[in-house]
Design a binder for these strands. Structure first.
Lengths: 249, 249
DNA sequence: CGTACCTTTGACGGCTGTCAAAGGAAGTGG
DNA sequence: CCACTTCCTTTGACAGCCGTCAAAGGTACG
């Protein structure tokens, strides 16, 4: 809480591995230019060349893929500490569009500097690769969720995914916390209609499992939520494959 | 066809970027021990530590996630040239189990050597990262597919995904080709029942779009297949973000 | 204070899952 | 080469989850 010498990304990457002092300095350089952005601010557009990555220092953001004019699907939910844009960094064009869900602070840095990091800081390169792999794991997990579960289970699973991701960064939080996702966003992330999401949330409230309001959520019965979602919290561990970590740290 | 001096992975990675001679030598070392494996052979098990990566030299393989005893979901379909196991390489435990769909030849190499590659061959490290990102793109695309489309469209989309992946490696193939995926596998990859997959395949045949037999498939009307799936073939380009490629090559 | 957006509710229909059973195709052992 | 088993594919009847459409009530925001 007290120290802010650590950059946001350092905090993120150090979940996975030991970060040396020099490496921490490199990383903090990446966050030189924090800028305040407002809700709705667009970070990048689908089809453009990925020339900036961003770290999210405060606020929430999301990315989506558009099909046709009015039809989109939500892919990523970003929260403070997340590295935004690595998914597409190596591709010639962005697959998604990304925008802020709330007001917040972001720190951009040029994609081209990834090259230098890979050349001079293999340990960081591995960390970035690992962080990307972890973001992929979230998407993969959602694919499994959507492939396997009905609406009630999908929603329970999705909420727990977010709950544990917040918990990892914020430490233990109470049963209630901020969740600036509207029913619309949940439906677009899970392949449901907002009408049906409304029905399920209502039912989950009636069953004393969760209580979701416009911008917050309260988990009334965590155990029950687990039962409904058969969610495996262990997947979200931060540990790396020991075969790949540097022992000299 | 004629030259086999190039290793399988070299061929794969060189789709994305220029590979130097020395780097090619490093890569070919990775394929020192090709081994014949039979259909059904298990490459790795969920929950174990990822200590081997594999390149697939011939044959087909797949990975799946199991839920409960008899219930699984198919995640990856691997075909010759693919690097198998990078998804989980940085994680402490395999998320999936992987097995051969057909007889084939694989080349294992220890995960721990990734560390050396990241330390001494940044260009290769970037290539491996890019290759992983490309595999992620396939999964992400399937998530969008499953979130957005009905059964007929999902199946059309899935078939085109595989069609273009084969085409990229094998060059132009006729309208018919080997596809050792049973209706079971298709259903497990798309969140449908094998009964319903059977119904849709029958209908697509009746409409003269495709003709799928047990181990092969023939595309009767590619244009129509595209219309049904609204599949965007450009996503499967091999190019990298120009900001990250080494100009000295 | 008015407008736009979000949430809730109800009726209705369709896509797809479930169950069950029969017909083929592949693999195995004699 | 045949018999037998196992697994894959096909078909039909039926049910249910969830999408669609429509409208009203809430909540934020200018």
């Amino acid at each position: 809480m007290a120290e802010h010498f650590e950059s946001c990304v350092t905090q993120n990457l150090s979940h996975h591995m030991a970060i040396g002092e020099q490496e921490a300095r490199i990383l903090s350089e990446l966050e030189q230019a924090p800028s305040k952005v407002k809700k709705g601010h667009e970070l990048w557009k689908a089809g453009t060349r990925p020339d900036q990555l961003y770290t999210l220092r405060s606020g929430w953001a999301y990315s989506y893929h558009s099909l046709g004019e009015d039809s989109i699907r939500v892919l990523d939910i970003f929260m403070p500490g997340d590295l935004m844009g690595i998914r597409d960094a190596t591709l010639p064009h962005h697959y998604t569009t990304a925008a802020m869900l709330t007001d917040g602070v972001i720190c951009p840095f040029p994609t081209s500097r990834l090259k230098g990091i890979f050349e001079n800081h293999p340990n960081l390169a591995m960390g970035i690769h690992a962080s990307a792999a972890r973001q992929q794991a979230v998407i993969t997990d959602r694919l499994i969720n959507v492939l396997s579960n009905d609406a009630r289970c999908r929603i329970a699973h999705f909420i727990l995914e977010i709950y544990y991701r917040i918990k990892r960064v914020h430490g233990d939080l109470g049963s209630g916390f901020t969740l600036p996702l509207l029913q619309k966003h949940i439906s677009l992330a899970l392949g449901l209609t907002h009408v049906h999401v409304s029905r399920i949330l209502k039912a989950l409230h009636a069953d004393h499992v969760i209580k979701k309001t416009r911008s917050e959520i309260e988990i009334l019965d965590l155990t029950c939520l687990h039962q409904i979602s058969n969610f495996d919290a262990e997947k979200f561990g931060d540990k790396m494959n020991p075969l790949l970590v540097d022992e000299r740290g």
